[in-house]
Amino acid sequence: MQRTHKFLLFILFALSISACSNFEKLRKSTDEKKKYNAAIRYFKKGQYDKASILIEELLPILTGTDQQEIATFYQAYCDYHTGNYEMANFRFKRFAETFARSEFYEEAVYMSAYSLYKNSPQFNLDQSGTITAINELQSFINNYPDSKYRDETTDLIKELRKKLETKAFEKVKLYYKTSPFNIGTLKSAVIEIVNFQRDYPDSDYNEELAFLKVQAQFELAQSTIESKQKERYDDAIKFYQDLVDKYPKSDFLKKAEKLYDVSLKESERIAKIEAEYKAAKEKEKSNTSKVGAADKQQ
C-alpha cells in the first residue's frame, strides 16, 4: 500500500514536471499560432495563470490581427478569475474603449463595473472603493437600461449601499460607545444619527438609532453646564416623542420612557428655578427703583 502511494506521488510529480516543461517550451516557441491556441486551451481549462502569461507575451504580436480582440478579452478575464479585480477593471474598460464594435462590448463594460464590486472592501474599512463601484454600476444601468445584466446590477448596487449603510451605523454606535459623558462625542453621536436618518430614511437600523438619539441627548443634558441643561433635556423629550410616533411598538420604548420621565422632571425643575430666579431679579429691580425714587424725593 505504501509503495503504491509513493508510486502515485512519483507519477504526479513526473506529470507536473512534464507539464511545466511543456509550458516553458510553449513560452519559448516562435510558433505564434501554436502559442495562441495553447493560451485559449489553458483559458478554457481554467488554468488562468498560464493563459495570462502566454496572452501577455502574444498581445504585442497580435496587434491588428483577428486574434487580438479575443486575446485581450480573455486577458481581462484571466485577471478577474485570479482575483486581480483592480487590473480586471482596467483591462475590461480598455477592451471596451479599443473594441467599441465588439460583440463582447456590453459584457466588458459590465465586467469592468462588476470587478469593482468584487474589489469592494469589508464594511469596516475605507469605503471609497465601494462608492466608485456603485457609481460605475449605476452608470452601466443608465447607459444600458435594457441590458440582460440590469436586474443583477440593481441587486449589486443595493448590496453595496447596504454596506455603506452598515458602515455609517457602526460609526454612529462607535461614537456613542466611546462617549460616556463626553460632551464633544455625545454631540457628535447625535449629529451622526441625524445624518444617518437623513441619508438612510428606510433603514432597518433607524429604530435602534431613534432610541440611541434619546439616550445620547439625555446623557448630553446630564453632562452639560446648568445654563444649557433645560434646552438639552427638552431635545431629549422631543426625540422620545419622535420615537413613539414612528415606532409605537418598539422594544426600546420602556428604556426610552425612563429617560423621558427624568428629562421631563428635570426640565420642569430647571424651569421652576429659572422662573423663581427671574421673579427675584424683577423684585430686586423693582425695590432698587423704589429706593432710587425715594432718594430723589429727599
Rank of each mutant, 00 (worst) to 15 (best):
G184N: 13
Q47P: 01
N124M: 08
K28P: 03
T154P: 04
A39Q: 05
K272L: 04
D204E: 13
V244K: 14
R91C: 00
K278E: 00
G46R: 08
K167Q: 14
K28S: 15
D245G: 14
Y240D: 02
E208T: 13
F90H: 10
D242M: 10
F140Q: 11
T4M: 02
R232K: 13
L243M: 06
I11R: 10
A293I: 05
S115E: 07
Y260N: 12
E165Q: 12
I157F: 02
E136Q: 14
R150G: 06
D242K: 10
L8G: 00
L59T: 15
K238P: 02
K33W: 05
P121E: 11
E266K: 15
F92A: 07
E274N: 03
S263C: 10
S263I: 01
K50M: 10
D204S: 14
A100V: 09
K171G: 09
R232Q: 12
Q68Y: 12
M1R: 09
Y277L: 07
Y176W: 11
D199Y: 08
R27K: 15
T65H: 12
N37K: 11
K33R: 14
G83K: 12
E57D: 13
A51R: 06
Q127N: 06
D146K: 06
H5N: 10
P60N: 05
A279Y: 03
I270W: 07
Q297H: 10
T82R: 11
E257R: 09
S267F: 02
E56K: 15
S227Q: 15
L174S: 15
K258G: 10
D199Q: 13
K148P: 01
K258M: 11
D235V: 04
Q67F: 12
A210Y: 15
E219D: 12
K265L: 12
Y117L: 07
G46A: 05
S29K: 12
E56T: 14
T178W: 04
E32F: 10
E152F: 01
E231V: 04
E192C: 00
Q197A: 14
R101L: 13
Y240K: 03
E97N: 12
G64L: 05
L125A: 14
G129F: 10
M1A: 14
Q2H: 05
S128L: 11
A189R: 09
I270S: 03
F104S: 05
R161D: 06
D199A: 15
F95Y: 03
L9N: 14
E97P: 00
D31A: 11
N119F: 14
N89L: 01
I237P: 01
T154C: 04
K246R: 11
F169R: 11
K177H: 13
N195K: 15
K34S: 13
K272V: 02
K285I: 01
Y149H: 14
S203P: 04
